[in-house]
Design a protein around this nucleic acid. Structure first.
Lengths: 337, 337
DNA sequence: TTGAAAGCGCTAACAG
DNA sequence: CTGTTAGCGCTTTCAA
């Protein structure tokens, strides 16, 4: 903080009045005479006074900081959501304290603890891919610390959540593949304990059924969202007597790995195998072929999460999941000419 | 902050000793008897006591928070650097307060002001593309608030900076193009007032000279880093009697736009026109053709910036620019078969 | 209409 | 070795 910032005391001394008068004048307290009020406010403005949030925080028992935990900072999906959260939070005079779990439950637990030490007023969290137990969050709930989950969610009976309509998103994918004449649609899913995995698997099953396609268990594979795994799975599928003619994956990482592998093997997309991802605009448009993908309303997710956070602050009993719709952006990778 | 966190007073009351004894015991003050020290520490551990940073901050006049301002949150380049800063800061018990300038000088100024209001201990900043005056930073310097710039830098005689070797990076590009037999190398640069622009232009000129290539002013164009502009410039170049046979750009945005435009027109990369970007691993490897590009040591930039920040905290007179080297990752887009 | 005093949680100088 | 007190910057009774 360096050179001491201006304090109420400084203003009071300069004007030869008491600190409490200055305090009141600054907040337009009706008790204070108009002249003094003006004098104080003018000086404060001229000297560029801003209240010390530490002092306020100590007094009010709040920091006006929201802890945000994401699996990583570098994926566009998360940074875009963060951007949305930040925007909304700023409009309410709150700051964001950012932490990354690096997809590890240990570091997620550590982050919760760190943010607690920093005395954030609450947290907005997307679970790490490893997170399959929730005591660290239950503790927050017990202590009535406002909490909101987005995308990868849990405990949604007590915690406000923002999720996309995962089932519907996958049904849209199946529908689109089906319309294009693809028959054997393969799905690289995520860790089984994540809601995004099982909701999408549900959509996969219901989608196949809906469009009269056969479910072949071989074509549904969970994975830990690693590039090597995705390549491995692709290889195994291609070695099948009846390989898939369409593949979609749980995120862009996975699906770009699939595309690269197909390309290495000289397999034509979308002629031989159609491909669809859960990716973002930027990545999807610059790949070749351009990738058909489920577009997340990322900024909206962030804004909504922040909105729910403030609702939860106002009403501790508030919970419930807001479901946002996705859009399937159809590009080259799934459309045979 | 919800349900009041545990305070020293709570511990003191429970143990029937004074607050200051508890305070001292917790910090292993030699004056305190081993028994009491142990008793206090055990209780603190059991009850999960953590000191209130607001109280500490008020007392010590520090928040242990570093304000970080970047042009945007969603570009991999910045989020990766942020990740590096965060890691180093965390290891020293500091938090990051993130702000985005959205490439606007107005919002940059606003962010500086907001972070100041939040009483950050200092700032680490990458200038917005519009920033061509620096009073808002000069004010920080005058108030002895530690400041570090990275990538897009200024005031480097007073402020520690981290930059890449821009001139060398471009010379490497020219060298590589030259080796591949490319003759008319075009460069889409950035706003003239940014160091990254003029340093790279310097490298462009010296590189051409070094490898005996002719400098044609038509082939050097500044731009405001917008997609449409890049496309426009590409179009104009292609309409030239002697169009370029190689193009490189100031960032990935720009160069992907160029690639898309060339592709739309059916121009073959790298056969007809070679292309090189300043991009990141992820984007560059998944484009088709895979993009040759200058790799920034992003994480290292972040870590180094944080390191310099703490140096500056210790020594207010410290300044000087750390220059990091880049690597040209040669991929398909610049290598004729 | 204004000022004095207490207290948010903590440390440090000063007493005992 | 331990306790009391003052003070970081602020708001809020309570007095005047």
């Amino acid at each position: 903080m360096a050179k001491r910032h201006l304090s109420l005391k400084d203003l009071a001394t300069e004007l030869n009045i008491s600190i409490s008068t200055v305090s009141r004048a600054l907040r337009n307290h009706p008790d204070i005479s108009p002249e003094i009020t003006k004098k104080v406010q003018d000086l404060a403005l001229a000297k560029n006074y801003t209240p010390n949030p530490l002092a306020m925080g100590l007094l009010k028992q709040e920091t006006r900081m929201i802890g945000v935990i994401v699996p990583d900072l570098v994926t566009h999906f998360y940074s875009s959501i963060i951007s949305g959260i930040e925007e909304f939070a700023k409009s309410r005079g709150y700051f964001i304290l950012l932490a990354s779990s690096y997809e590890s439950i240990e570091r997620e637990i550590e982050s919760v603890s760190n943010l607690l030490k920093a005395r954030v007023d609450g947290m907005i969290v997307c679970l790490s891919k490893e997170t399959d137990r929730f005591e660290h969050f239950v503790r927050l709930i017990e202590n009535e610390i406002p909490l909101v989950f987005f995308d990868r969610i849990c405990l949604d009976d007590q915690v406000p959540c923002v999720a996309i309509d995962n089932k519907d998103a996958v049904e849209k994918i199946i529908h689109h593949f089906h319309e294009g004449g693809y028959q054997r649609i393969a799905f690289i899913s995520g860790p089984a304990h994540l809601n995004i995995s099982h909701d999408r698997v549900a959509g996969y099953l219901s989608g196949l059924k809906k469009y009269g396609l056969v479910f072949d268990p071989v074509l549904l594979r969970p994975c830990n969202m690693l590039i090597d795994e995705a390549i491995q799975i692709t290889d195994e599928w291609l070695a099948l007597p009846e390989p898939p003619d369409a593949i979609f994956g749980i995120n862009d990482m996975v699906i770009f790995a699939v595309m690269q592998e197909l390309r290495t093997r000289g397999i034509k997309i979308p002629e031989e195998i159609g491909v669809i991802g859960f990716a973002d605009e930027f990545h999807a448009s610059f790949s070749t072929p351009q990738l058909t993908s489920t577009m997340h309303p990322t900024r909206e997710i962030g804004i909504k999460a922040a909105e729910l956070f403030f609702k939860k602050m106002d009403d501790p009993s508030f919970s419930g999941t807001v479901v946002l719709q996705t859009k399937l952006a159809i590009r080259e990778s799934s459309v045979r000419k």
